[in-house]
Design a protein around this nucleic acid. Structure first.
Lengths: 239, 239
DNA sequence: CGGAAGATTGAGAGTTCTCAATGCCTGTGG
DNA sequence: CCACAGGCATTGAGAACTCTCAATCTTCCG
């Protein structure tokens, strides 16, 4: 599985930043031998921690989130296989947010020193920089989503984005894919109430564009869904 | 002015990432000799452009923004002196958003090649990486702001953030600072209507925490304002 | 079978938007 | 120096969207 994700997911993403020499690929594969499992709900990293490892998602979903003084919770990013949890490690003093496992997860730990080593490899440094820029683009897209769309568009856009990202790492086919977020979690990600998420999902179902059951989504009319979401995948910089 | 901003603003930020050797500072200063002026409203970079320069804000305010198919506009970041406009240049194919001048601006252009050179300097590479991580933290804070606060808190938080950032680069004192955004632009940044921004500003004024006239804000009760905003400056990673 | 978590639904309350109308300030031209 | 146009800011009233607070239903699991 690890080998699979490194070759099909993470490396695929790195390659998007340019060609990666074969020896760099080997180096990366060797570094990720320390893989840990986390159960759903458990925090991978907690706000205030000073992690000395960089974490790479291998399996499962996780999320960045923050808790506000009034108890509100906001999810600021969803992490799927191939995503880095904390590019911060080597530079910022401490985590300004937490990362929690949405489902059971497998995460590869790479030591701080190993990352510093890796950064000396031009191709890898470029790839990590590229990944960071894509993360920024996704954050901007979320801001646009929360600011300029109402619930129907928000939910549709989230579904479109996760579908595109999952498909890119080989975890979704054209029509259906795993989507393990509860309605409560979708609400926390979009800044709306779980009750309203429920009504919105019903509206999307009744519009005939998608259906969700258990932890799985089936998109029945992708063009319509993308229309509702005003979804343009360009910001993901995939291909 | 250029020398001033380089020493007091940008370099101050870079130093936050660690000590910067004196020769690196000189190198940076020399690189920023090509400074251009842009009038308010003009785009510095337009979506779809493939810029071959990195731009550093020297004077004035600018904003990243996106226009949606339905005509809506969302500002995803505010740029003040010392901020980079486009760390993207060397890696991503094209801009996925535009950057517009809010006020008259002065911007330093650094060539792509010069940046690549700079990245070979460990201290500078680290500093640029650090700046990018802080940008991400600000984006996450905006997501939290848009998702979990209502208008009063949103506006208060934006004011607190800009005050902290301006103060860090020496452009604000404890009580007052320039704030050139129109109510329309504040609305575009926060995902609310300019009409509602107006009512919200009035509420803050009537609460006695701040006043805004022309392009200037005077905060009369910072603790109260930060309380309303639930503002915790930690995410800016200043100091 | 019982319990717990998540999903679903209804009804009323609250926030924000829309659409206009009006007021204020500034720069321009006579 | 004044009139006037244009861009913001301000205000009101009703509509639309989303939230809150329960209550009920389903599903999953021990």
């Amino acid at each position: 599985m690890l080998t699979w994700i490194m070759t099909h997911s993470f490396l695929t993403k790195l390659r998007s930043a340019g060609d990666l020499p074969r020896e760099d690929e080997d180096l990366l594969l060797k570094l990720c031998e320390d893989v840990r499992s986390f159960p759903a709900q458990r925090d991978l990293i907690h706000e205030g921690d000073r992690p000395d490892h960089v974490r790479l998602m291998i399996e499962g979903w996780a999320c960045r989130y923050q808790i506000l003084p009034d108890g509100g919770r906001q999810i600021t990013a969803l992490l799927i296989p191939g995503d880095f949890c904390d590019s911060h490690v080597t530079l910022l003093a401490s985590m300004d947010h937490s990362i929690g496992a949405v489902t059971d997860c497998k995460v590869a730990l790479v030591s701080r020193d190993a990352i510093v080593q890796l950064m000396h490899r031009p191709a890898i440094a470029r790839a990590l920089w590229w990944a960071s820029l894509v993360d920024q683009a996704v954050l901007r897209a979320w801001i646009v989503n929360m600011g300029r769309r109402q619930s129907l568009g928000k939910v549709a856009h989230l579904i479109c984005e996760m579908h595109a990202r999952l498909q890119f790492v080989g975890l979704a086919d054209a029509g259906a894919f795993d989507f393990p977020l509860s309605q409560e979690q979708v609400g926390d990600a979009l800044g709306i109430t779980s009750v309203h998420v429920n009504r919105t999902l019903r509206a999307l179902r009744e519009a005939g564009v998608m259906a969700k059951s258990k932890g799985r989504i089936a998109v029945t009319d992708m063009p319509a869904l993308r229309g509702i979401a005003q979804f343009d995948p360009g910001y993901l910089h995939l291909e």
